[in-house]
Design a protein around this nucleic acid. Structure first.
Length: 272
DNA sequence: ACCCAGGGTAACT
DNA sequence: AGTTACCATGGG
C-alpha cells in the first residue's frame, strides 16, 4: 500500500539534504529512495504532505516514528518567530524534520563525517553498507555492531575512510562489549548521554551532539560545527535567544540550513 | 602545489 | 583550561 502523510512541515528534500543523514538519494523524477531500519523506501513530495510508496501496512508506525510525526513543528516555528533571525531561517527550512535514526548508524556516520565533506561521507557509508551490511530486497542494511566488532583496521581499507578506521572499530567493539550501552543512553540526560558516547575514541563533543540529536532525538543537543560557530559569532554575538529552550537542536538545524544553503552568512568559513 | 571538508587526539604551554 | 600539528583521502 501507499501511505499519504498529510503535513505542511514535511519536505523530503529539506529533511534528507540538511546534513542529518547520508543514505537517502534523490531520483531523477524528484522522489527519494533509501534504506533505514533495515527497510527500503521510496517517497514522493506532494503539496501538503508526503507519499510513502509500497509499504507493508505493519510498517506505517515504524516510518511515522522515523519521520517524527508526533512532533508539531509548526508550533515550534511559531515559538521561534519571536526572534527575527530564527523567524527568517525557519521560514526557509520549515519542512525539515529531525529524523529518529538508529543510534549505531548515527555514531558511525558522524565519526566518518569528521574533517570530511558530504559527497565523500556518502561514498564511504555506501561502501561500508555494501561490504558489511545485510542484503535487503533492494540495497543493504546498515551493518550491526556485532559484525563490525569482528573486523580489523585493514578490513576497512576498501572504504577509504583513512584515519577514521580505528575509530569505527573502537566504536563497534565498545558497543558490542557493553562498555558503551546504547540502550541505556535513551533514558539518560543530555549530559550523561554525551559522557557515555565520548568514551568512544573518535567521538568528541560535536559528533556526540549529532548522535544525541539525530539518533536519540534529544532536542537540547546543539551540535557546533565550523559553520555554526561562524554563524553564532556573526549573527548571535550576545548569545542565543531564550525562545529556543527545549528545542535547541531544531533551531540549530534551521540555522545550519540557513547559512549553508541560503547565503545567511557574509563570511566564508575557514579553519581559524 | 595549496586549501578545505558538519573534528578528534595527543602533545604541548 | 586553552592552543596546535597531525591525522587519510579526494575534489576544487
Amino acid at each position: 500500500m501507499d501511505l499519504f502523510i498529510e503535513n505542511n512541515n514535511f519536505n523530503i528534500a529539506q529533511t534528507f539534504l540538511c546534513g542529518q543523514c547520508f543514505r537517502w538519494k534523490r531520483l531523477e523524477n524528484g522522489d527519494f529512495e533509501g534504506t533505514a531500519m533495515g527497510k527500503r523506501l521510496v517517497l514522493s513530495q506532494e503539496e501538503n504532505g508526503v507519499v510513502l510508496h509500497n509499504i507493508n501496512s505493519d510498517d506505517a508506525s515504524v516510518w511515522e516514528n522515523y519521520f517524527d510525526m508526533e512532533t508539531d513543528y509548526g508550533k515550534i516555528i511559531e515559538i521561534f518567530s519571536s526572534d527575527e533571525i530564527l523567524k527568517k531561517a525557519s521560514s526557509g527550512s520549515s519542512g525539515i524534520r529531525i529524523l529518529r535514526q538508529e543510534p549505531f548508524e548515527t555514531i558511525i556516520s558522524f565519526i566518518i563525517s569528521q574533517n570530511n565533506n558530504i559527497p565523500r561521507i556518502v561514498g564511504i557509508i555506501d561502501r561500508l553498507c555494501e561490504a558489511f551490511g545485510e542484503k535487503t530486497e533492494s540495497g543493504f542494511a546498515f551493518p550491526t555492531p556485532e559484525r563490525m566488532a569482528e573486523l580489523e583496521d585493514l578490513d576497512l581499507s576498501p572504504l577509504r575512510a583513512g584515519f577514521r578506521n580505528r575509530y569505527i572499530i573502537d566504536a563497534a567493539r565498545k558497543i558490542k562489549s557493553g562498555e558503551v550501552d546504547l540502550e541505556k543512553i535513551k533514558s539518560l540526560s543530555y549530559d550523561e548521554g554525551k559522557k557515555e558516547l565520548m568514551k568512544i575514541c573518535g567521538v568528541g563533543e560535536k559528533v556526540a551532539d549529532c548522535v544525541l540529536l539525530f539518533g536519540y532525538h534529544k532536542l537540547d543537543a546543539f551540535p557546533k560545527d565550523v559553520w555554526v560557530k561562524r554563524m553564532l559569532a556573526e549573527l548571535y554575538p550576545n548569545g542565543l535567544p531564550d525562545c529556543i529552550k527545549g528545542f535547541e537542536g531544531i533551531a540549530q538545524q534551521y540555522l545550519f540550513d540557513f547559512v549553508r544553503n541560503n547565503g545567511g552568512l557574509k563570511t566564508a568559513p575557514n579553519k581559524k
